Simulated assay, not measured.
Amino acid sequence: MLNLILFGPPGAGKGTQSENIIAKYKLIHLSTGDLLRSEIQAGSELGLKAKTLMDQGILVPDEVVIGMIDNKLKEHRNAAGFIFDGFPRTVKQSEALDQLLASYNESISVMIALVVDDNELLARLLNRGKTSGRPDDQNEELISKRIQEYNSKTKPVADYYQEQGKFVAIDGIGEIDFIFEEINKAISKVTVK
């Protein structure tokens, strides 16, 4: 089973590359952002709580996210693998994810990080905000807060997986197809037996 973490700050291109990876490797996409937004749209208690936090640029509590992921793992027991998009964001979440996967006799195969500088991220998100309808992509101050949140809390996750020999950094600026080729090279290193 291929279990891949696609990592990077908001606007790094994770959504675009996730689609390419899913199409090629037939993985189940686990985007915590999408899971949370669907809860918000449904108007559930979890969704309303998550919306309040997300509107402030604050991360949703770990136990809520891990519970949602566990439900998806149970739902797709015979999958070829999973792509984790936007999760884990902290070392604590990484440890919880590793424990959860171990309970299914699985582990993370590789973490691929898309590296993009902050100025490019800001420009991308503001541009995306023109068409996405997402208020968090239309406010420069909120975007900057999201990027700072990523930089302060989630970069240590890269170190966590680097210590396990599972971390690969890829330049997230350039042609989409070229970036996807680089992702494929990283995946092939963990899938070749």
Rank of each mutant, 00 (worst) to 15 (best):
M1P: 13
M1V: 15
L2T: 12
N3H: 12
N3Q: 10
N3R: 09
L4N: 04
F7S: 05
K14C: 09
Q17D: 06
E19H: 12
I22E: 00
K26P: 03
H29S: 03
S31Q: 04
S31G: 10
G33S: 06
G33P: 08
D34C: 01
R37A: 04
S38G: 01
E39L: 02
E39D: 02
G43D: 05
G43P: 03
K49N: 02
L53D: 02
M54V: 13
M54D: 04
D55S: 11
I58P: 01
E63G: 04
E63K: 09
V64M: 14
G67E: 06
G67R: 02
K72H: 13
L73Q: 12
E75F: 03
E75M: 12
G86R: 08
F87C: 11
T90S: 14
Q93E: 10
Q99A: 13
Q99T: 08
S103R: 04
Y104A: 14
E106Y: 02
E106F: 01
S107Q: 11
I108F: 00
I108Y: 02
V110R: 15
M111P: 03
I112E: 00
N119E: 14
N119F: 05
L121W: 10
A123C: 09
R124V: 02
L125W: 13
R128T: 03
G129V: 10
G129Q: 11
R134W: 05
P135R: 10
P135I: 15
D137Y: 08
N139G: 10
E140T: 11
L142D: 01
S144L: 15
E149M: 07
S152G: 01
S152I: 11
T154L: 06
K155N: 10
V157T: 08
A158S: 09
D159E: 15
D159V: 00
D159W: 00
Y161I: 04
Y161W: 00
Q164G: 04
Q164R: 12
K166N: 08
F167P: 04
V168T: 07
A169M: 06
A169P: 11
G172Q: 10
I176N: 08
F178V: 15
I179E: 02
E182I: 01
I183A: 09
I183L: 05
I183E: 06
K185Y: 02
K185G: 15
I187P: 12
K189Q: 15
V190T: 14
V190R: 08
V192L: 07
